[in-house]
Simulated assay, not measured.
Amino acid sequence: MLGYAAGTLVGIGGDIDIADQLIDRALVIHPASGASLFWGGWVDIARANPARAITRFEQALRMNPRSAVRPQALTGIGLGLLAQGEVARARAALREAVQYLPYAPVTLAALIVAFTLHGEEQEAAPFATRLSGLGGTRSIDATIRDPKMRALLDTTLARYAKPQAVNASLHKTPRISGESSR
């Protein structure tokens, strides 16, 4: 439960220091908890600790290689690798992740950054269009905190977003499914 609480804090852009303390406590209680390692990886991404994030995601995947959260772990690994400057490896992990998460904003955003950093801006274009069409989400703001990555993402989105998607802002919260249109 501590790992999931930490994950919730990351997802809503909450206090990352508290999330980190929750993960530390969870791993003291059960060092081999795949869920705590997975959420600890996301806490580390948010805290700009990519090396430990990658290690935690990889440990969680070794424990359960067929985990339902494998694509999200690959997204985290990709973000960690991007932060370490290992763009080619990041791109490979993110390409695999997007096959399973074709409309996940954080995965799309990370892949756009990877393609752009790798000099493949045309490859980023369809993903930028897809992401812009989704509208905004807080998950990108909460997860991709590095100002350079955000600036690169925003520039690529502005360049390749379809005209009807240009008004979609990464800083808007999407309508909750089932919410009345009144």
Rank of each mutant, 00 (worst) to 15 (best):
A6S: 06
G7R: 01
L9R: 00
G13T: 10
D17M: 09
I18A: 14
A19F: 13
Q21V: 03
L22P: 00
D24S: 02
D24Y: 08
R25Q: 09
P31N: 12
G34R: 09
G34T: 12
A35V: 15
S36T: 07
G40W: 05
G40L: 00
I45K: 03
A46L: 11
N49F: 02
P50F: 00
A53N: 02
A53F: 07
T55N: 10
F57W: 03
L61K: 03
S67P: 13
S67T: 09
Q72D: 12
Q72P: 07
A73H: 02
G76W: 01
G78M: 01
G78T: 06
L79T: 03
Q84W: 06
G85L: 09
A88Y: 06
A90C: 09
R91K: 15
A93L: 02
A97W: 03
A97Y: 03
V98A: 03
Q99W: 00
Y103P: 05
V106K: 03
A110D: 06
V113D: 07
V113R: 05
V113M: 04
V113I: 15
A114T: 08
T116Q: 12
T116I: 04
T116R: 07
H118W: 12
H118T: 13
E120C: 09
E123Q: 11
A125R: 13
S132I: 03
G133M: 08
L134S: 01
T143K: 02
P147T: 07
P147Y: 06
K148C: 02
K148I: 13
K148M: 10
A151W: 02
L152P: 00
L153C: 01
T155A: 15
A158L: 12
A158Q: 14
A158I: 10
A158S: 13
Y160T: 04
K162I: 11
P163H: 10
A168H: 13
L170A: 11
K172T: 14
T173G: 05
T173H: 05
T173S: 11
R175T: 15
